[in-house]
Simulated assay, not measured.
Amino acid sequence: MIALIQRVRSASVEVGQEVLGAIGPGLLAFACVQPGDTPARIERMAERLAAYRVFPDAAGRMNLGLREAGGGLLLVSQFTLGADTRSGLRPSFSRAAPPDEARAGFEALLAACRARLPVVETGRFGADMQVALINDGPVTFWLET
């Protein structure tokens, strides 16, 4: 499983003209389920999203996770993170799970995050989504399990 996380001041996702999810300060996480991602990998990613230390403590150091710092998580499915871009001029998506497997894995990740955090918003799996954000820092990390 892959997640691209960004510390944000705010973020939202909409489909058409409808806002499906929005948060204030927190994390925006784009997630890609890969073939063979196990429940253990999904749980590990959920824990990392809740606890990865990207928020400043009283001394200004990145020592707090989302659970400690408070704020929301906006979780957005993004199969393009699984692209193989090593050659050619067109990405191959062989490193992303097929749609049915990806949907089940993403829904499991969403449930695991909601079990760990009080504010978890999301978009719509497989939809053409528009994501808006104000990156805080900027702080962006690539996580894999």
Rank of each mutant, 00 (worst) to 15 (best):
F125W: 11
A31K: 09
L75W: 07
R124Y: 05
R103N: 00
A96H: 03
D100L: 04
S94N: 11
P91T: 02
D100F: 00
S87C: 12
Y52N: 05
L49R: 03
T145W: 07
N135F: 08
R116I: 04
F79W: 09
R44A: 15
G24K: 15
Q17Y: 08
F93Y: 14
M129V: 05
G123W: 01
G82E: 01
L75G: 10
A50P: 05
P35Q: 14
L109R: 01
L110I: 01
F30V: 00
G16L: 10
P35A: 11
A127V: 07
D37P: 10
A97D: 02
V33L: 15
R103M: 04
G36I: 08
G60N: 08
L4Q: 15
P98Y: 00
M45R: 03
V119D: 15
S92W: 00
T140A: 11
P138K: 05
V8M: 12
F141T: 05
P91I: 01
V33N: 03
A102T: 02
V54Q: 08
T122H: 13
G60R: 03
M129S: 08
A96I: 01
T38W: 03
A51I: 00
S87E: 13
G26A: 13
A112Q: 06
L133H: 09
L133N: 04
R95C: 11
P25Q: 15
V139M: 08
G105H: 02
Q78W: 06
E47A: 10
S92H: 06
E121D: 11
Q17K: 15
L28H: 06
L28F: 12
P25T: 13
L117Y: 05
E107W: 03
L49V: 05
D136V: 04
I134N: 14
E144Q: 14
D57P: 05
V15K: 06
